[in-house]
Design a protein around this nucleic acid. Structure first.
Length: 409
RNA sequence: GGAGAGGUUCCCGAGUGGUCAAAGGGAGCAGACUGUAAAUCUGCCGGCUAAGCCUUCGGAGGUUCAAAUCCUCCCCUCUCCA
């Protein structure tokens, strides 16, 4: 029978891991595992989806995941994978973010009856006493050893402050704390976390003479080598307020052909056989597989209803034949009086958010990338007014893919 | 604390008195081609109803008709030494 390790393996979740036999042994009984999420922003984004999905898979396999919100560790800042120290965040910011992230995770994991747990490491880290900590824990860390960690190597070139250097100790302490209090024997994380996690298993071995394990996930880049979850608009957020379900759906459907199989395995719960069938599609047919990917991914994050809406909207806008409207298309409301007067196209494009600045809008329109109700706007300052719309609504389009519905109040 | 190197537009990185809104590359955007994909080609790529004007080259002053470029002070980073 397949255990969670096999599932991870066949779905592409594993980059590195500690001893396989020991892990498989571990998974024979219900296992508690954890992943930390740093509340550096008010929302998680697509880049965190692999760890999130891994926890969800873990829960489906009958184990108990713990999501640790790093309210304490973020006070210090993880240098792993970063070329520069990031600005120190205030406690208020961090706490606020931690709250938001908690809410988001509940959409992916079932926290009923402690089937999954969520804890904040601020609860145990912020009360630590410096001298005690150094004497009881600090002594188990070899600086020589730490300096060989990949996560620090890079920073030794550009600069590493003492505060960040301590991050590894705190994360190790977390692991130890969870081991003691929740019998958590497995920590997972991105591949850049390997050093931090291994430091934790070492600490547990030294303090408790017991074994803990580690699994890391590959850093997911798109086929073009870009980190997952970044677009021209910035990060793709899981929060529907920051990235609408429609945009979220679009993000997935616009993925590179070569990424579809990998992403279906990682970001949906579809059975492997089904994924393989979908990815055997070739040429233009692969669009169908992308549609499934987009739908399923949106469903996992925003629920079935939103996924349906996003799909319907996309079909209307991009489907063959006549283009229509849908609820899910982003909408910009404006004053009726303002529109009655008429407004130059480039200003409207800027105001509605389709373009960042008026210059940007001018550029777009001059280059022939602006449309109203699918008719090209030839002059950048063409006046748009109520008569420009059909039945009181008008649909702006920037380039091939970005739409904005203008509605009047 | 001492010596050296350096901080340039989203990123990398040229530029050492005017010809600099600043080379080149990357990213991004638009157009062509397509399949809401990739690759390729072309154009754009600080802001502003724009052949002009305004704001940028770590910060603050100064020299000059004119400064990213010269001077002074300050801040920050790196390397070596203590």
């Amino acid at each position: 029978m397949k255990d969670i390790f096999d599932i991870y393996k066949e779905r592409g979740f594993i980059e590195q891991h500690t001893d396989e036999d020991a892990l498989k042994e571990l998974f024979k009984t219900q296992t508690t595992c954890y992943i930390g999420f740093d509340p550096t922003a008010s929302s998680l984004h697509v880049g965190s989806l692999v760890p999130i999905m891994s926890l969800a898979q873990m829960q489906r396999a009958g184990h108990r995941p713990i999501a640790v919100v790093g309210g304490g560790t973020t006070l210090v800042g993880d240098p792993s994978g970063k070329t520069e120290m990031r600005p120190v965040m205030t406690r208020e910011q961090i706490n606020q973010n931690a709250e938001c992230i908690k809410k988001q995770l509940s959409r992916f994991l079932d926290f009923e009856n402690d089937k999954a747990l969520m804890v904040n490491n601020a609860d145990w880290l912020t009360t630590l006493n410096y001298i005690d900590f150094l004497r009881d824990f600090g002594r188990h860390f070899s600086v020589n050893r730490m300096l060989t960690a990949e996560s620090y190597k890079m920073r030794l070139e550009t600069g590493l402050s003492f505060i960040e250097f301590n991050y590894m100790l705190l994360q190790s302490y977390d692991f130890w704390h969870l081991f003691k209090n929740y019998d958590c024997r497995l920590q997972m994380g991105g591949s850049d976390q390997w050093g931090n996690i291994i430091a934790g298993t070492d600490l547990i071995r030294r303090l408790e003479r017991d074994v803990a394990h580690c699994i890391t996930f590959p850093l997911i880049t798109t086929s073009s080598g870009i980190k997952m979850g970044k677009t021209h608009k910035g990060a793709v957020w899981l929060d529907p307020e920051l990235t609408s379900p429609y945009d979220y759906y679009q993000y997935w459907i616009n993925q590179d052909d070569n990424d579809v199989e990998r992403f279906l395995l990682l970001f949906t719960f579809l059975p492997v056989e089904e994924v393989q069938e979908l990815s055997s599609l070739e040429g233009a047919d692969i669009r169908y597989a992308k549609e499934v990917l987009a739908y399923e991914a949106t469903k996992v994050c925003h629920g079935e209803e939103e996924a349906e809406k996003a799909r319907a909207a996309a079909k209307k806008l991009f489907g063959s034949g006549n283009q229509g409207m849908s609820d899910s298309v982003p909408e910009y409301c404006m004053d009726k009086a303002e529109l009655e007067k008429g407004i130059p196209a480039f200003i409207l494009f800027e105001q509605s958010g389709l373009c960042k600045t008026r210059s940007d809008a001018r550029r777009l329109l001059t280059q022939g990338g602006g449309y109203i109700n699918n008719e090209k706007i030839d002059v950048f300052d063409q006046v748009i007014d109520l008569k420009s719309g059909k039945d009181g609504v008008m649909l702006l389009r920037a380039g091939k893919k970005r739409y904005m519905k203008i509605s009047v109040t």
